[in-house]
Each structure stands twice: as C-alpha cells, then as structure tokens.
Amino acid sequence: MNTAAYPILELVGLRKHYGDQEVLKGIDLRVRPGELVCVIGPSGSGKSSMLRCCNRLEECSGGQIVVDGTDLAAPGVNLNQVRQKIGMVFQQFNLYPHLNVLGNVTLALRKVQGYSRAKAQEKALAALARVGLADKADAWPAALSGGQQQRVGIARAIALEPRIVLFDEPTSALDPELVGSVLQVMQELRESGMTMLVVTHEMAFARAVADRVVFMDGGVIVEQGPPDAIFGAPRELRTQAFLQRVCS
C-alpha cells in the first residue's frame, strides 16, 4: 500500500439524511492512488448512498468530499469539471439505448472533453480493447449480453481517464454465469494501476482482489482493514454476524 501519496478521494465527516432519517452518520474514508477498496455491508447500510455522494449524484448534508485536491461539497465548485475525473459504473449499466457502443463511449469524450470525433473514437476503441470488446464497437446495447453491457459501461467510465472509478454493485444485475467476465475486467484494471472504490456483494472478489475492505452498517464504517483481517478475523460483532450470514 502506497501510504506516502496523498489520497485521491477523501471523505471527511460525510453526513446525509432523508427527512429525519439519517443514512450516513459521519463517514471518514481515504482512497490512495492505485488502491482498490471494496465496501461491503447489509442492504440499507448506506454504502450506495456514500458512493453516490462521491460524485454528488446525491447531495450530502454535511462533511467534505475531496477528490484530487478539490472539495466537491464546496460552493461554486465546477461539478462537471470534477466529474470527468471520477468514473462511475452502475448496477443497471445505464447504457444509452439510442447510441451504439462507440456512441456510448465517445459521448462525454466529445461533449465534455472536446475531442474531435476521430480522436474520441480512437480513445474509445482503446478503452473498449481494455474490456475485450473492441469488436463490438458498432453493436447496439440491446444486442449485448448483460456482462458485455457492463463491460461497455466500464469502458465508458475509463475512456475519460478518470483518477478514480466508482463501482455501484456492478455485478448485482447480472446472471451468475456472466459475473466472472466483469470481475475479470475489474481485476485487470486494478493491475494496470487504476484506483477503484467498489460497493459489492461479491465476497470472494473482495477477498481475492481488494487492497482494503470496508464494512459499513447503519450509516457508519464499522471496521476496515486488509481482506484477510476482515474476512479471517473480524473484530466487531456486527462484522462477524454479517459475514456469517452471507458466507454460510
């Protein structure tokens, strides 16, 4: 773990509530360059809310979100500027059905980063090659399997060359036999040095690939550490109970 570098993503005292229901009760989290952090926990623990606050798809009620030195929660911040640095991969893929695969990947390259069509396509094809789908550039999303769609989703995120990619339960909507191909791509990404924050239910993946595992419950981080420590010898009772439930 590279502790010397400053964190790419830092959450400080992040809070969020819907009405009087508090879903995030002060989250502190740092993700360092090249690190893969997996967030696990029961549903309703606030892990997806936390992830979606990281690029302000959801507004937080208090605290700081610092990405690459910029506080996203500060007033007057150019959100679209910062969002290019934060890729996001969604549970439901959210591919644009009216654009083909290449169109999906090039849209932000052209509209946000201002690349010419040719240059954007070149970058998009490179990203598609990284997820093993260069041959599907002309396909329509509807013609792809779920696993392929999600890999296009990953290509769409990494084509912008973000500093960090957020994964919101990227395999939860997939048929079991398609999960492997997506996890494979994620592992390769990690090996190429991409910084990743992954909310997931795939315990085996978290254990095998993550640098650090964060267990959340009830809107707080209960415990975090290397996967072996969390899975092998959890200190907190809540962590033990959760792992017993999901791993049995």
């Binding site: 690029n55 798809l57 679209n80 500027q81 910062v82 969002r83 290019q84 934060i86 890729g87 996001m88 969604f90 959210n94 591919l95 644009y96 849209l107 932000a108 509209k111 946000v112 980063q113 989703g153 769409r156 995120a157 912008l160």
Partner: peptide, 10 residues
C-alpha cells in the same frame, strides 16, 4: 440515464 450522463461530466 441522466445519472450516467451527469456522472461523466455532461
């Protein structure tokens, strides 16, 4: 759809 678009900086 709008989440994916806004997340990529549009």
């Amino acid at each position: 759809q709008s989440e994916a678009a806004r997340a990529s900086g549009l």
